[in-house]
């Protein structure tokens, strides 16, 4: 499927071409800034695209925590009277990370290690975020979407009534 993406109130489609473009932008950002791992996260906690050291990728736990932490700190900032929130930076002894807003719905996670400096990462992130924003904003918005186009409907070949999706061991 080579369409970019469709984006509606209920379903976010990430097309092959768009995902590849996002990944390419993230890879360029990793290379330029020496960030070891970068991921574009959606506010519900899903990794939309990522690049860099795959060892940092898990089943979604890190993304869920990152999105939750970002939302919590953003809410604190708002409650303390600051309507703008430019993300946050954790400075560990060896490993560091920052979370930066891309759009109200998407967040950029960057993981890096000493001696890479936050100032450099921040500078490179500005350029990467501008690219990501441009790519996200080109998403065509359909009036309505249920199944991803190009994927046959499950009706008729899969019975949800009879199926047990999760089995207890």
């Amino acid at each position: 499927m080579d369409t970019l993406t469709t984006h509606s109130g209920h379903v976010l489609h990430l097309g092959v071409t768009l995902t590849q473009r996002l990944r390419h932008t993230l890879a360029g950002y990793c290379q330029e800034s020496e960030v070891r791992y970068a991921a574009l996260l959606e506010e519900s906690g899903t990794i939309c695209a990522d690049a860099g050291d795959a060892a940092f990728k898990d089943s979604g736990e890190t993304a869920a925590l990152a999105v939750g932490a970002f939302a919590a700190l953003q809410a604190v900032a708002r409650r303390l009277g600051d309507g703008t929130f430019e993300g946050f930076f954790h400075e560990g002894k060896t490993r560091q990370f920052c979370l930066t807003p891309v759009t109200p719905q998407f967040i950029l996670l960057s993981v890096f290690e000493a001696p890479v400096r936050f100032a450099i990462v921040k500078l490179c992130a500005v350029k990467a975020i501008a690219h990501l924003q441009e790519q996200i904003e080109t998403m065509p918005i359909p009036e309505r979407s249920t199944m991803p186009s190009g994927v046959p409907s499950a009706a008729g070949d899969f019975s949800f009534e009879a199926a047990t999706l999760f089995r207890q061991e």
């Binding site: 519900s44 991803p148 190009g150």
Partner: peptide
């Protein structure tokens, strides 16, 4: 929001 990634062929839902 359901997220469909056609590249990784994965659909995610939040419950």
């Amino acid at each position: 929001m359901a997220v469909i990634n056609h590249d990784t062929r994965e659909v995610s839902f939040k419950l």
